[in-house]
């Protein structure tokens, strides 16, 4: 029994190291200066440059136009991630609500059509999407960045399944209690969906935050750059002399990881709480 436990722990520790080591190396490396990294590669121990590096990436304006710094990019990423996640949740909840609770012609067909778009990820339809955004003059705007992405077959599907598991009697009790369609939605369905919303929010926020291809296409204005793009930009543009600013790239990468981590930590506790105190 004892030995079995020991080996269990070894496996777990191995897993932890495997997952955490790259992040640790990135953090350690981000605390050195560019020359050290250039000469002797990735660093495993803390260096003395931490504050300077992080200050530089956060506050020093970079790029061609010298008007974007890490903080601005973080703001842009946040707007994209939040807009993306909230937009997707709102749209897919409403779509699922319509599909599950309203009898309209070809409701099932509608659902399956929506469902089929799951097979068409953004990358497949990126050119037509770009065409439309461009012809609407929405390039280089936040709405151009967010709106074309918020339709969500995944979200609609999950909310549909969830709504279908809500007992009919709840709707009937609400009808007798004088709740119309909107009241039922806001007073009953939305609170019941809390954990569902939290789960989808986690996934969608991280997904939106990590978008790379779409923002690259839609935004040419550096003031709208997101963090994920910024990391790449550092490598190309912020090269002080002949040496790439690897330390700053690492620092930015660490910063770019923080908000998704925070979101996951916050919403996960919600999410688990919801799962444990199963409602309905």
């Amino acid at each position: 029994m004892k030995r079995l436990q020991l080996s269990d722990h070894l496996v777990l520790i191995g897993g932890v190291i495997f997952m955490v080591a790259p992040v640790m190396i990135a953090i350690m490396t981000s605390t050195h200066d560019a020359i050290t990294i250039y000469k002797s590669g990735l660093q495993f121990l803390p260096g003395g440059q931490m504050l300077e590096n992080y200050e530089t990436v956060l506050f020093r304006a970079g790029g061609f136009t010298k008007e974007v710094n890490g903080l601005v990019m973080m703001k842009n990423s946040l707007i994209l991630g939040l807009g993306f996640a909230i937009g997707k949740i709102v749209i897919s909840m409403l779509a699922a609500y319509a599909i599950v609770y309203f009898r309209f012609p070809m409701a099932t067909l509608c659902f399956w059509v929506i469902f089929c778009t799951l097979l068409l990820p953004l990358e497949v339809r990126i050119l037509p999407s770009y065409e439309i955004v461009q012809s609407l003059g929405m390039t280089n705007t936040y709405s151009g960045l967010i709106v074309p992405l918020i339709a969500s077959a995944t979200g609609t599907f999950f909310f549909r399944q969830f709504f279908m598991s809500v007992p009919d009697e709840l709707l009937e009790a609400a009808r007798i209690d004088g709740a119309g369609p909107w009241k039922f939605f806001f007073d009953i369905l939305v609170p019941l969906s809390k954990t569902m919303i939290a789960a989808i929010f986690i996934i969608m926020f991280v997904y939106g935050w990590n978008q790379y291809l779409w923002p690259t296409l839609i935004t040419t204005d550096e003031a709208l750059f997101t963090l994920v793009r910024g990391i790449k930009q550092i490598m190309q543009v912020w090269v002080g002399a002949q040496i790439p600013a690897l330390n700053e790239a690492m620092a930015l990468a660490i910063l770019a990881m923080l908000p998704p981590v925070i979101v996951v930590v916050i919403f996960q506790s919600w999410f688990i709480k919801g799962l444990v105190e199963s409602d309905k």
Binding site: P167, E172, A173, A174, G178, D279
Partner: peptide
């Protein structure tokens, strides 16, 4: 409408609002 019929109903599974 059910709400305007001036009736109240008790369901088998109670249908209480869980939240």
């Amino acid at each position: 409408d059910p709400a305007d019929r001036d009736i109240a109903m008790v369901f088998q599974n109670y249908a209480l609002y869980p939240h």
